[in-house]
Design a protein around this nucleic acid. Structure first.
Lengths: 214, 214
DNA sequence: CCCTGCTTGTGAACAATTTCACAAGCTCTA
DNA sequence: TAGAGCTTGTGAAATTGTTCACAAGCAGGG
């Protein structure tokens, strides 16, 4: 009954990726030190992260790779299939649907939606683009819990409101705008422009210094 | 001469986006309260973030929108043009190159690189896909300081090493793998699988609770 | 000029996260 | 069974980031 930090969850996800690697290579155990090196963090961090969820390791030996992999999958909720709705049949949506490791991790595209009449009805990967208007009806008979928002900023909030009303409880937002959702809905935003600007800042202000008050 | 948190820089980027909006709408001033509401943060946070770089507001009035916009552009290093190299002529690269607000913010695609012989030489947006082998030579005569890595995880580190050796000092990584760079190189990673898994975790463990030690 | 109503800028309090340091515990060997 | 050599698990300390609370300061009105 403890609040888990977002950063911790992200690291768990990374541990899982590398543990899967080690597992397929047949490695039996891995120490926190080894995991830390692979994932670019510290051994203490690895141990602390895992300790929130139980005692998976053996002192003197390390963590059993195969077992820990299973535990992490369960913790992250990856033992079931998650249906994903892609909103916006553009390049970002295509990149996501194309993404290896998307399916491998149990995420399957349940539908693609767009407003553009030229796109509606077209095949798109293994799905067919459906009109945005069909959203609510489709959701009722086949409710996909995770929606990926890959549309322009304008109107993004309106679409989110519709999704939430229709019962979606998790949204991954790629639209470069601030989205608000009720507290029971989980929202993550990825903003490419913001990341690039972060790099621009770092290059402009070497060492993250504050040089200039105007 | 103060270390600026990553989270602060991200928020600055967001403030800028909304200030630009307000500016084009002709709004003269904005209070920390208004900015906070737009950006989904708190007034105190807004003031603290800005205070790291100077005193831009007027007590009783708020912040002058147009002026603050200019200040933020300067702080973030957006008053110059940044050349961007896209490594990997796939869907993710296409989504990025297509991205509105990419150019608006002063980022221009200086080149696209791929290993696939079927892609090399093909037109791609306004550029022509170049072979990866040409990287070093091209960089010398037209060095792009920011590289976007939109290739699979395998071989990503090798490409990064080449980029670093060739003088690139900022990398935005979309490959789902841990990348290491020397300290003078800035690296940001965006990992879509990780974000989705974060949602999966949140849906599986409502309220971020730790229910089950095995 | 003085008072009222706002809003900034900021040290200090608070909260969250990471790192440290070490006792506890496992395996192997003799 | 005892001892050596590792590595985990975890309170406590340190660090980092956010929120609070309020003095300082500007604008407008009488």
């Amino acid at each position: 009954m403890k609040r888990i930090a977002d950063s911790t969850v992200r690291r768990l996800s990374m541990y899982l990726r590398y543990l899967e690697d080690l597992d397929t290579r047949g490695q039996q155990t891995a120490s926190s030190d080894e995991l830390a090196h692979l994932c670019g963090t510290t051994p203490a961090q690895v141990r602390k992260d895992l300790s929130f969820f139980g005692s998976f390791g053996k002192r003197g030996l390390g963590y059993p790779v195969h077992e820990l992999t299973a535990h992490l999958r369960e913790i992250l909720g990856l033992q079931r299939e998650w249906k994903v709705l892609i909103i916006g049949a553009g390049k970002i949506g295509a990149a996501l649907a194309n993404y290896r490791g998307f399916r491998q991790r149990g995420f399957t595209v349940a539908g693609v939606y767009d407003n553009d009449p030229n796109k509606v009805g077209q095949p798109w990967g293994e799905a067919i683009v459906r009109p945005m208007d069909a959203l609510e009806a489709d959701l009722n008979r086949d409710d996909a819990p995770i929606a990926v928002l890959a549309i322009p900023a304008e109107g993004a909030q309106a679409v989110v409101d519709r999704l939430v009303k229709a019962g979606v409880r998790a949204i991954l937002n790629f639209a470069p705008t601030q989205i608000t959702v009720p507290p029971h809905v989980n929202l993550k935003s990825v903003n490419m422009a913001m990341e690039l600007e972060g790099l621009s800042f770092a290059l402009t202000n070497p060492g993250y210094l504050d040089e200039g008050a105007a």
